[in-house]
């Protein structure tokens, strides 16, 4: 019992700290890539406390709900967006035997719960009673529907290779040559995951230059901060999943397992930020085209490749 409590406490702590670290890194990395300095004053050393200061500011702000909004749905939408990412962290293994709960169908659990998170954006978009919000919510829904398929297909390729759906089981089976073998699936999974998080260049649903802030337009104060937290928690979860499924998770030379997991998550989070700075926003038709003409056939190809190698090896 105590063991479970400690594990859950560590997971909640990681859930509260890692997204803030990613957020602060994004401030600094984006700034330096654009020849700026980013936050420099809060907390003294290179503005390390900027996000804590932001959090204090968000808590103090007035919690505004538009008069025409659907109040209940408007209020619970941020929680629907945030909680799934916390739940997902419970089943992600960070080291050999270090996992909150080892589920037999862990892979499906993760994909199912992450799909629920998108409902938060759709609910927020509709309940705000704002035409920009509804447009953003619809775009989020359309994006989820097209990118869920390549995401699930790429993930099932790894499950086929390992012969199990358990995330710990997949890592137990993992060998170094899976890196080139599953590389195509890894790219598809990461890109589709990025699209599900609605991060640039897939940020058509929140495109600030045309629909202000999409589903979050009417949100202020702590509820807006929860949406932001959900975005960064999503980056952590996507990095962790890609690391576990395609990069060998805690496998690695010299350093202990959990350190390797954190390094891989960190590198992937950096890539997410890097992509945001480097690429312009994709148009809605380009988004759909990339999913159906690009990623789905590639994911099917990866599935076929996995099957052939699996049969030849057996």
């Amino acid at each position: 019992m105590l063991d479970v409590v400690i594990r859950l406490a560590i997971i909640v702590a990681a859930f509260l700290v890692l997204p803030l670290l990613v957020g602060q890194t994004e401030h600094k990395v984006m700034a330096h890539m654009q020849s700026r300095l980013g936050p420099m004053y809060a907390g003294g050393f290179h503005g390390w406390a900027q996000l804590i200061a932001d959090g204090v500011k968000f808590v103090q702000k007035e919690d505004i709900i538009p008069a025409a909004a659907d109040r209940t749905i408007f209020k619970i939408a941020p929680a629907v967006a945030l909680v799934p990412y916390l739940v997902v962290l419970i089943v992600i293994p960070v080291g050999d035997g270090l996992v909150g709960v080892d589920l037999d169908a862990g892979l499906f659990f993760v994909l199912a719960v992450m799909g629920v998170g998108v409902l938060g954006a759709i609910m927020a978009g509709w309940a705000s009673a704002n035409k920009y919000s509804v447009l953003g919510g619809m775009r989020a829904a359309a994006q989820l529907m097209s990118y869920e398929l390549p995401l699930v297909l790429a993930a099932s390729s790894v499950a086929m290779a390992a012969g199990t759906l358990s995330l710990s089981g997949i890592l137990d089976e993992w060998q170094w040559w899976w890196l080139p073998w599953q590389a195509l699936g890894g790219v598809v999974f990461f890109v589709a995951g990025l699209a599900e998080l609605r991060r640039p260049p897939f940020d058509m649903p929140i495109a600030d230059s045309e629909i202000i802030m999409g589903p979050m337009t009417e949100y202020a104060g702590i509820r807006f901060a929860l949406f932001m937290l959900a975005e960064y928690a999503g980056i952590v979860v996507l990095g962790a999943l890609t690391a576990v499924l395609f990069l060998g998770g805690w496998h690695g030379p010299l350093l202990p397992g959990p350190v390797w997991t954190l390094i891989k998550i960190g590198v992937l989070a950096f890539v997410v930020i890097w992509v945001r700075v480097s690429y312009p926003r994709m148009r809605e038709d380009q988004l759909q085209r990339l999913a159906w003409v690009g990623l789905v056939p590639l994911a099917l190809l990866q599935l076929a490749l996995t099957g052939v190698v699996k049969v030849v090896m057996a």
Partner: peptide, 28 residues
């Protein structure tokens, strides 16, 4: 266990999202 997660993945993650998209596209 497996059927439960597939139920969430397919019905909540895909079917309801499709329904909501359809409703929001026509009238909501």
């Amino acid at each position: 266990e497996f059927v439960a997660w597939v139920q969430i993945l397919i019905y909540v993650g895909a079917i309801v999202v499709l329904l909501l998209f359809g409703i929001m596209l026509t009238r909501a």
